[in-house]
Design a protein around this nucleic acid. Structure first.
Length: 888
RNA sequence: GGGCGCGUAGCUCAGUUGGUCAGAGCGCCUCGCUUACACCGAGGAGGUCGCCCGUUCGAGCCGGGCCGCGCCCACCA
């Protein structure tokens, strides 16, 4: 016995009593082994490899925990990462979390509220300290969940979007864009979110359809006459500063230039003409409220109208709304204003009206358009090269239909409101002089108390912070040390692919492309893969608040990480899909099947007297047609899995693995070799030639299993890593090798032969109920000796013979096969009726097929117009089917 | 209002360039504790491929229309 043999046998003892793969037992320790190995942490300066491969993870919110989207996306990225690592690439999966300004701040504010405290009570510094503390406490959840899933991120270099180095990158970018004139400050109407007390960007607004009332209100005109305007927001009339009609509307041309009187308030409003007003909607007369409506704001700018604001940042009516309304919520004020107007008899119509109302994606509260002094960023210059990058294919978006979505949006890109009235985030690096109002934007904070260079006044830093997405946009390079020229940056930037769901295509992906090109000269990745959104099983959106969420962590606890990974990958596609627990079960089954197949093979080999694991070379030594067949099929599945992953088709990659393991390796090959590895008497040494045969078989079997296990590793890393140790792997499979397709092992003839053998055997399996063990002896090798057609025909005629002539008296029927006979049918318990029904069904199917082919061939058009080879094929098919029917 | 996409077996989904393409997994029914696996194996039932036209020798697969559903974008009070 060799030392290696002893070693492997020792390990096998662990397998003896495990009749199935127990994820909860194996998986956590495997994670530990991976982490300790350092495999996930590549040396950026290593030159001994096959090149580099990198992915930047979409940074989850620090506050978050793993949801289905993370689980799917992480499984996808991990397949890509693991495959390339196994190929020998210097592979890095950049890990980190996002500070998620609004979400995190809201969480901590909620906590403070429960303590009877508040953000303002604490003050900025103390509050921030509290958030940091909170983040230390709760921030690690998702990262540990990623580990549990098996995601092979570089955990030793975890980034955070508020880290010191990261903050330097953010400031650098802000200052550069400011100096280029792209970033500016403006008093503009913004989407004000009263919930988070901050402005938010257009992309963070969601429209909801609501039923409201459209009120028609009469405004008097100075000097007689009236105008009637329609509105769903009567409360904003308090801030009207004009009334407008369309310049081409002949009905009202005489009104332009006159003055209307605002009801309840008495303000004099100019009647103006603007193209925006539709002549065919309502009365064609429109109230203009520049401070509370985005359209009216634009009109107001065009006509230099006064901006009067009656709604405050808290979403309540302000002092300017007048004593009667000040302090009311907007909706209360609406009721009150309507009542007041009704008292004056000014409401002439009320009709139900369905329209879209903007809500904040962040807080869920209704957006209040308000005028506010904010920082904006002009996007046109940045967008141009980012459009070109996608148009030219330098950045490839998969699936392709998202390309158009991206290009359409980019073509119409608008300025981005980048300031947020929060504390948790990157504070805008701008200082304003109290004295002269001069603004300085610079990377370094001025010395405290240092005076304004212009007037010597005191400098105050901007209170606002940047939109979280501003810092996220720098993710692929800021995480690697930019603006420093670090080895990491040189090795791993640009990254290879960015994988995400489509909901953040604009919010994040587009902005990364723009920023990447602007600051590094190159797009941050070459491929963008947009994966499925997994919906709840009932087709609704998966969400915590709806109670429709399925928790991947619970799924992992129940079925194991391998099962969840397989399931998610198998169910994903280019479409949205419903979560199907069955696919996870299927993954669980696959892991278990592979475990048991390997366990069977190893234990069987171990029981062969005279076989030494140490002497079994890693090379396959195919002896029989079955061996050549499984090796050939193995090459096919390797090619298939690779090809599928290459095009981000993870579902078919996963299913191909499943089909191979179940449908070929276990159902057929292992069954065929069982007799060849029959239990031998441990006391009796095998004859030399038999020993030689068994050694060859064991070598082939082990080689096939090693490759299968390696091939499956990116999808189901845990069970394969575990099996790898039993299969004699000295190092971790995660860093071992990637199975190459060996073309010379592909043998189409053997595949065809075996396909026919399977067909022949299946004919008998149809009678399985009355068939006993001897059927298994019909291995391809034996069938091959006499030709499959002959055997199939023999079996078919035998079946016919037996069923028609057999009266149940004889216990056993023998089938002549090459080299002797095989006992096939045991007459006892033979259900002749069922067998006959099956045969009749088979005949019926054949008759239908024949009829269909015959119809085609009888069709003169088909024979005349179809390609010659198709016609020939149909003729051959007809002959073949007829023969089959004859034989049955 | 624009754009994208989907409707195939009870359920979740595959079905490349039109010619065995009517499939898989789960579920269901029947049978089997055959010493890898009952977290198993074998077999079976089950579908006018949403509907209607059209193109074609031939259409889940291409074109048009309709019905139903989803998502994204959008400043008509």
């Amino acid at each position: 016995m060799s030392e290696r043999d002893t070693q492997i046998r020792e390990r096998l003892s662990l397998l003896r009593d495990s009749t199935h793969f127990e994820p909860e037992r194996f998986e956590p320790q495997i994670v530990q082994r991976w982490l300790e190995s350092g495999l996930f942490h590549p040396d950026p300066q290593d030159r001994e490899d096959e090149g580099t491969y990198s992915i930047a993870i979409p940074p989850p919110n620090v506050t978050g925990s793993l949801h289905m989207g993370h689980a799917l996306n992480s499984s996808i990225q991990d397949v890509l990462i693991r495959r390339n690592r196994m190929r020998g690439m210097r592979t890095k999966w950049i890990l980190g979390t996002d500070h998620a300004g609004i979400a995190t701040q809201a969480q901590v504010e909620k906590l403070l509220a429960s303590e009877g405290s508040s953000r303002t009570q604490l003050g900025r510094e103390a509050f921030l300290a509290r958030v940091w503390e909170w983040r230390e406490h709760y921030g690690g959840t998702i990262v540990s969940q990623l580990k549990r899933l098996g995601a092979s991120c570089d955990y030793s270099e975890e980034r955070f979007t508020l880290d010191g180095d990261y903050a330097k990158a953010v400031v650098e970018v802000f200052v550069a864009l400011y100096e280029k004139g792209y970033i500016y400050k403006d008093r503009y109407i913004v989407n004000w979110d009263p919930g988070s007390r901050s402005a938010i960007s257009d992309l963070e607004v969601e429209e909801r359809e609501e039923q409201d009332t459209l009120y028609s209100i009469v405004y008097d005109l100075e000097g007689g006459g009236t105008m009637t305007i329609a509105t769903v927001r009567p409360e904003t009339m308090l801030a009207d500063t004009a009334v407008a009609v369309n310049p081409n509307d002949e009905r009202y041309s005489d009104l332009v230039g006159r003055t209307a009187i605002l009801p309840l308030v008495g303000r004099r409003l100019p009647v103006i003409a603007d193209d925006y007003v539709k002549t065919d909607f309502g009365t064609g007369q429109l109230k203009i409220t520049p401070a509370h409506d985005p359209n009216d704001f634009e009109i107001g700018r065009r006509h230099e109208l006064e901006q009067i604001s009656v709604i405050g940042e808290d979403g309540r009516m302000s002092e300017q709304a007048g004593e009667a309304f000040a302090g009311m919520t907007v909706l209360d004020a609406r009721v009150a204003v309507v009542e007041a107007l009704e008292r004056e008899g000014r409401i002439v119509a009320q009709e139900p009206y369905v329209h879209n109302v903007p809500y904040s994606h962040r807080s869920g509260q209704r957006i209040e358009p308000l005028i506010s002094l904010q920082w904006f960023m002009r996007m046109d210059e940045l967008a141009a090269p980012a459009i070109e990058a996608v148009r030219s294919g330098a950045v490839k978006i998969v699936p392709e239909n998202h390309r158009k979505v991206y290009l359409d949006w980019m073509a119409e890109i608008r300025p981005w409101c980048i300031s947020r009235q929060l504390w948790w985030g990157h504070r805008i690096p701008a200082w304003t002089c109290e004295g002269c109002g001069a603004v300085q934007v610079q990377a370094m904070a001025p010395e405290s108390q240092s005076p304004c260079p212009q007037c010597g006044g005191q400098l105050l830093q901007e209170e606002d912070v940047l939109d979280t997405w501003f810092s996220s946009a720098l993710w692929p390079f800021a995480t690697l040390g930019w603006p420093q020229d670090t080895p990491q940056l040189r090795a791993f930037y640009p990254t290879n692919v960015l994988s995400t769901a489509r909901d953040i295509l604009f919010l994040w992906v587009a902005r990364m492309i723009m920023m990447g090109i602007e600051f590094t000269g190159r797009p941050p990745f070459t491929d963008v893969y947009i994966h499925s959104v997994i919906q709840a099983p009932d087709g609704r959106r998966m969400s915590k608040s709806l109670g429709t969420g399925v928790d991947p962590v619970e799924e992992i606890e129940r079925d194991g990480a391998d099962a969840v990974r397989f399931g998610l990958l198998a169910m994903s596609s280019s479409q949205d899909v419903r979560y199907s627990a069955e696919k996870v079960t299927q993954g669980h089954a696959l892991a278990n099947k592979l475990f048991n197949a390997t366990r069977f093979a190893l234990l069987r080999i171990a029981e062969q007297p005279g076989l030494d694991f140490g002497e079994l070379a890693s090379e396959a030594r195919p002896e029989t047609i079955e061996d050549r067949w499984i090796l050939s099929r193995l090459q096919r599945v390797k090619a298939e899995v690779n090809a599928r992953i290459d095009v981000y088709d993870f579902s078919h990659a996963a299913l191909a693995l499943y089909d191979f393991v179940y449908g070929e390796l276990c159902d057929w090959y292992l069954e065929w070799i069982k007799p060849r590895l029959a239990l031998a008497d441990p006391e009796q040494p095998l004859p030399a030639d038999e020993l030689e045969r068994r050694q060859a078989l064991a070598a082939t079997l082990l080689a096939v299993l090693r490759e299968t296990v390696a091939l499956a590793h990116p999808v189901i890393p845990f069970v394969t890593e575990e099996l790898w140790t039993y299969l004699g792997g000295e190092d971790l499979l995660a860093g071992a090798f990637w199975p190459q397709v060996e073309q010379e092992l592909i043998d189409a003839d053997v595949e065809a032969d075996v396909a026919r053998a399977i067909e022949a055997i299946s004919l008998l399996r149809g009678w399985r109920d009355s068939v006993s063990a001897p059927v298994r002896k019909l291995v391809p090798a034996r069938l091959a000796a006499n030709g499959y057609e002959a055997t199939v025909a023999a079996i078919a005629s035998l079946a016919k013979l037996d069923l028609s002539d057999h009266d149940g008296a004889a216990p056993v029927v023998t089938v002549p096969i090459p080299g002797g006979t095989v006992e096939v049918l045991s007459a006892e318990g033979l259900d002749l009726g069922a067998a006959e029904r099956r045969r009749e069904a088979a005949r019926e199917r054949l008759r239908q097929d024949i009829e269909r082919v015959q119809r085609k061939l009888d069709n003169a058009g088909f024979v005349a117009k179809a390609p010659a080879e198709v016609v020939v094929a149909e003729r051959e098919k007809l002959v073949k089917l007829s023969a089959e029917l004859e034989a049955l």
